[in-house]
Design a protein around this nucleic acid. Structure first.
Length: 680
DNA sequence: ATTTTCGAGATTTTT
DNA sequence: TCTCGAAAAT
């Protein structure tokens, strides 16, 4: 492909060393000389921003300084991908003088976004405000500003999975169905499929939304979907799929809004591009449609999210004007890389990009197979104790294909009293008590039926199924929210237990409107509702701590912001913001799934459960699925810096579905490159 | 209205 | 084997 890249002359700032006058000169002059137009003397252009390219290898520099346009960086594991992204961002800001807020960096996780933000501040100083965001976070920003163009309020509510379930449960009740007829999982995937294939957004945002009710009738499943959409629409709920779909629809139908964002974001860079799905791809191409600056980084061999709609083809078919290959691996020893390269080369579908090891020789990966007498988890814990002699436990990680596999390992570690921490993804804002607390706040912010349903009977206020359904009827009849309905019925003896609750919410709403601090509000609501007392009574220390932590988090946020944060803004942010989990467990072994370990690295890595049916997973045995499983294993192996330990459960055993847990084919594929440990 | 019991079903997970 | 959700029992 010979697409000619417009070779814009890039300018950099410099100043005359004699008279101090400021200039812009072409970047190529960096370190050379120039004649001052003011005093006429020849001065040396101080090499600027050389630190931006410090310690980078030629390919990395090539990527960082790549010209504008469509650039693709194929970066193998451990080749400094994140580094390139950060430096590129710094390069754009420092060298090309692009205002930081005209560059959008997209990541997949909040964690990665925070990491990126931290790094760029470290490089350029705290004052730099660059836009680093997840796909969903960015869409949220867009919609909070512009969704009113679709006749939706900017104060829409984001539903998480639990909210979705509540909604479905409600629909089941109305339609007289039970989860036996249709499992939630089934319905959820039907809904997301429906949302993927149709222009449903147009129906949802049309002023009367009548199409929703008429168009979907007859068969139960379409009716469920229709009811779901209708409920969403009625309450202005968006789920995570909607966030991106609405943004796409908005951009497609309103050229003004689309143009505004295109103008605003002159440069876009995307990390982990091998994991984008169709809508995400559409979003970034649309956004970069005007300025045409799209810089994507990824590794086809680390595509492990195909099951949720990702496709590498967007990365492979990327219309790149320039492609840079990174293959110098800084992370792992040659032995570990040898094993990893060996494994991945068994994929038919694979781009030749073997990693070059830069590290010194180390130790050969060790493999252990459990039997009836010697369990896998015992072997791992023995090896861990051995490791502890030379490094802290926190340098070790145990990676599993599935979360439930961690339980057995956990038991063994407890027995040997090895400190550990399981990263199970249930982050702070997903915990029950946190969600309950936030629902109280949501209720103070405005009528929110989901929040209402969640907290109206926690703590118990005698609101069971029957009274709730009565309430729903009244609400439906009068066309008001559940809370309104309840407050109008408060004289009724049946609902008298709730009078305090209603009073509390009313009072809180007034306080919120009067600009009361969120922390005060939260404190008061938790106390007066009796929620805190209920948690205390149940005596679960963890939950108490979590509540305290939430209060602290709110308080800190207010202190940091320096100005009062409105309840509304706070809630709008919170749904997409999940707090750090890192500080936990200082000197403890990290246990996590392979998927969760992506993007991380550890000196010493244990990969457990190398059995057929586990890795590769029994749900993924079609040839192309096995290739993905192989990539999962590849990701696991390449997390290791110095030592890699592989193990499998007793291959003679049978799992719960009656299959023999034979040795994983992946072990056979890498046999020449590993040492097998004898059982003793 | 809440607690107990029984049976089906069973990755990976971000937002 | 374990966990979750809905029917049955209190």
């Amino acid at each position: 492909m010979s697409a000619s890249v417009p070779d814009t002359v890039r300018q950099m700032k410099t100043e005359c060393t004699f008279c101090g006058r400021h200039f812009e000169v072409p970047v190529e002059y960096n370190g050379g000389t120039a004649d001052c137009t003011s005093c006429g003397k020849t001065f040396v252009i101080a090499p600027r921003a050389s630190h931006l390219l410090d310690g980078l290898n030629p390919e990395q520099i090539d990527a960082v300084t790549a010209p504008e346009g469509y650039v693709r960086v194929i970066a193998g594991a451990g080749t400094g991908k994140t580094r390139v992204l950060t430096r590129r961002l710094a390069y754009l800001i420092e060298e090309l003088h692009i205002p930081a807020d005209e560059i959008l960096s997209v990541t997949f996780t909040n964690k990665a976004a925070r990491e990126m933000d931290y790094r760029i501040r470290h490089l350029l100083g705290d004052s730099v405000r660059s836009r680093v965001s997840t796909f969903h976070g960015f869409c949220n920003t867009v919609l909070r500003e512009d969704i009113h163009h679709l006749f939706y309020p900017n104060s829409f509510t984001i539903m998480d999975e639990e909210d979705q379930k509540l909604l479905l449960r409600e629909i089941y009740a109305e339609m007289g169905l039970s989860s036996r007829d249709f499992s939630y999982k089934e319905v959820k995937s039907a809904i997301s499929l429906f949302k993927k294939d149709t222009g449903y957004v147009a129906d949802v945002v049309s002023p009367d939304a009548s199409a929703l009710r008429q168009g979907l009738s007859g068969e139960p499943m379409p009716r469920i979907i229709g009811a779901y959409l209708w409920k969403q629409r009625k309450n202005y709920f968006l789920d995570y799929d909607d966030l991106i779909n609405f943004t796409l629809y908005l951009f497609a139908t309103d050229t003004g809004v689309c143009g505004k964002w295109q103008d605003r974001l002159r440069y876009i860079q995307v990390d982990e591009f091998q994991d984008v799905n169709a809508s995400q791809y559409e979003l970034v191409t649309l956004l970069s449609g005007k300025h045409g600056n799209l810089f994507v980084v990824g590794d086809p061999d680390q595509t492990i999210y195909e099951w949720r709609g990702a496709s590498v083809r967007f990365f492979l078919d990327f219309p790149a004007e320039k492609t840079v290959l990174l293959h110098r691996n800084y992370r792992s020893t040659p032995e570990i890389l040898n094993t990893s390269n060996n494994l991945i080369s068994h994929n038919k579908w694979h781009i030749e990009n073997p990693l070059d090891a830069l590290k010194e020789r180390g130790v050969t990966p060790v493999f252990f197979s459990a039997d009836w007498e010697h369990s896998e988890s015992d072997w791992i814990s023995r090896r861990l104790q051995e490791q502890h002699a030379k490094r802290p436990y926190s340098d070790c990680a145990i990676l599993c294909r599935s979360l439930f596999l961690t339980r057995k390992i956990e038991e063994a570690l407890v027995r040997k009293s090895i400190p550990y921490h399981i990263y199970n993804g249930t982050d702070f804002y997903k915990r029950q008590e946190i969600k309950d607390a936030l629902c109280y706040l949501r209720l103070a912010d405005g009528d929110d039926d989901l929040a209402f349903l969640r907290v109206v009977n926690t703590p118990r206020r005698g609101m069971g199924k029957k009274r709730i359904s009565m309430l729903k009827e009244v609400a439906e009849r009068d066309g008001v929210s559940l809370f309104r309905a309840l407050s109008s019925l408060i004289g009724d003896r049946m609902f008298c237990q709730c009078s305090d609750f209603v009073a509390l919410v009313e009072r809180s709403r007034q306080q919120a409107a009067a600009g009361e601090a969120v922390s005060e509000l939260l404190n008061a609501m938790l106390k007066d509702s009796g929620y805190e007392a209920a948690v205390m009574f149940e005596g679960d220390q963890d939950r108490k701590n979590n509540l305290e932590e939430l209060k602290h988090a709110v308080y800190n946020l207010e202190k940091e912001a320096g100005e009062p944060v409105s309840l509304h803004d706070y809630l709008a942010q919170i749904a997409l913001y999940s707090e750090r989990e890192e500080e936990r467990g200082r000197d403890s072994v990290k246990i996590m799934t392979i998927h969760a370990a992506k993007g991380l690295e550890f000196p010493c890595v244990f990969v457990a459960g190398l059995n057929e049916g586990t890795l590769p997973n029994s749900h993924a045995i079609r040839p192309e699925e096995v290739e993905q499983e192989r990539r999962v294993a590849y990701v696991a192996f390449t997390r290791a810096e110095e030592e890699l330990y592989l193990s499998c459960d007793n291959p003679e055993r049978f799992n719960f579905s009656g299959d023999k847990m034979e040795l994983s084919r992946f072990v056979n594929e890498i046999f020449p490159t590993i040492n097998t440990e004898e059982r003793k």
